Amino acid sequence: MSQAEAPTAPENTGPRPRNPLWTLGILRSEITTTLRRHRTYALLAVLAAVPVLIGIAVRIETGGGGSGGGPGGGGGPAFLTQVTNNGLFLVFAALAATLPVFLPMAVGVVAGDAIAGEASAGTLRYLLVAPAGRTRLLLAKYASVLTFCLVATFVVAASALAVGALLFPVGEVTTISGTRITFGEGLVRAGLTAAAVAASLVGFAALGLFVSTLTNSGIGAMAATVGLLITVQILDSIPQLSGIHPYLFPHYWMSFADVLREPVHWEELSRNFQLQGLYAAVFGSAAWARFTSKDITA
């Protein structure tokens, strides 16, 4: 065969299609990395300790002849007054105690560090060398933050359930509406409550991810995210600003209590989920626009 007749290799006329398994690999890697960090273990340990402290405090108070409940001045249902009668209520009390501060602060730390932490460590450029693309990497980062939201919420619920069953009697559950449901159905309601709490953090997670794309300092992004959380919660507590309260992401957080009604009241829950979806869409899009056009130098 002459040189002119020798077969030639086909030319590469375009980029190779990306293998979907590669996307799953990135997602699995990001989730695993997030959950295996020592910082994540520390955050989860603090969250798990909150129900323990609440349970011990209630047990000590009731052991001394107290009623187990404090003065009813809070904005949410007085779950603590029911803990001594049924340890399952410690799940709802712990979620009510951790949702305003502890859970969102933990999520703010993880979300704020998602992109900025990689940039400050000098690993972001190496991540982008892989044929994943910025969009897929950003989605994987967001998915890892949402996974942490779910894991953190269920860690609080599981810790509260274990402590409640150990320190207090368990049995049929009296709902907020006054009806009684079986313990098994109460467990289902507790799981739904934890899922609702995790869903309440979806919008804030997107906000934290957006902040993380604005800077190369992981500590700065975490501080800014937590600072925004505190600022918005202060705004939500000022009566003179009631006109903007329905548009603030933490406004409907305590609506998870409606899961413990018979039947379940979905109106406030639906508003909460819609608001979280709106925040996720707006700040997720802003994070994508910033990250895909950002000059990566670290």
Rank of each mutant, 00 (worst) to 15 (best):
Met1Leu: 09
Ala4Lys: 13
Glu5Ala: 15
Asn12Trp: 07
Gly14Lys: 00
Arg16Thr: 06
Asn19Pro: 10
Asn19Leu: 10
Leu21Asn: 05
Thr23Gly: 07
Leu24Asn: 10
Ile26Lys: 06
Leu27Tyr: 01
Ser29Cys: 00
Glu30Asp: 10
Glu30Pro: 01
Ile31Leu: 02
Thr32Trp: 10
Thr33Glu: 06
Arg36Gln: 13
Ala42Tyr: 01
Leu43His: 11
Leu43Trp: 09
Leu44Pro: 11
Val46Gly: 05
Pro51His: 04
Val52Asn: 01
Ile56Met: 12
Val58Met: 09
Arg59Trp: 12
Glu61Pro: 04
Glu61Tyr: 10
Gly68Tyr: 08
Gly70Val: 09
Gly72Leu: 06
Gly73Ile: 14
Gly74Glu: 09
Gly74Lys: 05
Phe79Asp: 05
Leu80His: 13
Thr81Ala: 07
Gln82Gly: 07
Val83Thr: 05
Asn85Asp: 14
Asn86Tyr: 02
Gly87Ala: 13
Leu88Pro: 10
Leu88Trp: 14
Phe89Thr: 03
Phe92Val: 09
Phe92Gly: 11
Ala94Gly: 14
Thr98Cys: 12
Leu99Ile: 07
Phe102Asp: 09
Phe102Val: 12
Phe102Leu: 15
Ala114Ser: 15
Ala121Arg: 12
Gly122Lys: 00
Thr123Ile: 07
Thr123Ala: 07
Thr123Cys: 07
Leu124Asp: 07
Arg125Pro: 00
Leu128Phe: 06
Ala132Gln: 13
Arg134Trp: 10
Thr135Ala: 11
Arg136Ser: 00
Leu137Asp: 08
Ala140Ile: 02
Ala143Val: 06
Ser144Ile: 11
Leu146Pro: 13
Thr147Met: 15
Thr147Ser: 15
Phe148Ile: 11
Ala158Tyr: 12
Ala160His: 09
Gly171Gln: 10
Val173Pro: 05
Thr174Ser: 13
Thr175Met: 10
Thr182Ile: 02
Phe183His: 13
Ala190Pro: 14
Leu192Glu: 04
Thr193Ile: 03
Ala195Met: 14
Ala196Gln: 02
Ala199Val: 04
Ala199Gly: 05
Leu201Glu: 15
Val202Cys: 04
Gly203Lys: 04
Gly203Trp: 02
Leu209Pro: 05
Leu209Lys: 06
Phe210Ala: 08
Leu214Trp: 01
Thr215Cys: 07
Asn216Met: 04
Gly220Pro: 11
Ala221Phe: 06
Thr225Cys: 06
Thr225Phe: 06
Leu229Ala: 09
Thr231Gly: 09
Asp236Trp: 08
Leu241Asp: 03
Ile244Ser: 04
His245Met: 14
His245Arg: 15
His245Asp: 15
Pro246Asp: 03
Phe249Val: 13
Phe249Trp: 15
Trp253Gly: 13
Met254Tyr: 00
Met254Ser: 02
Ser255Asp: 15
Phe256Leu: 08
Val259Ile: 08
Val259Asn: 01
Pro263Gln: 02
Val264Phe: 10
His265Gly: 02
His265Asn: 02
Trp266Asn: 04
Leu269Arg: 14
Ser270Phe: 14
Gln276Leu: 04
Gln276Pro: 02
Tyr279Asn: 07
Ala281Met: 14
Val282Gln: 14
Gly284Phe: 11
Ala286Trp: 11
Ala286Gly: 06
Trp288Lys: 07
Asp295Thr: 01
Ile296Glu: 05
Ala298Pro: 05
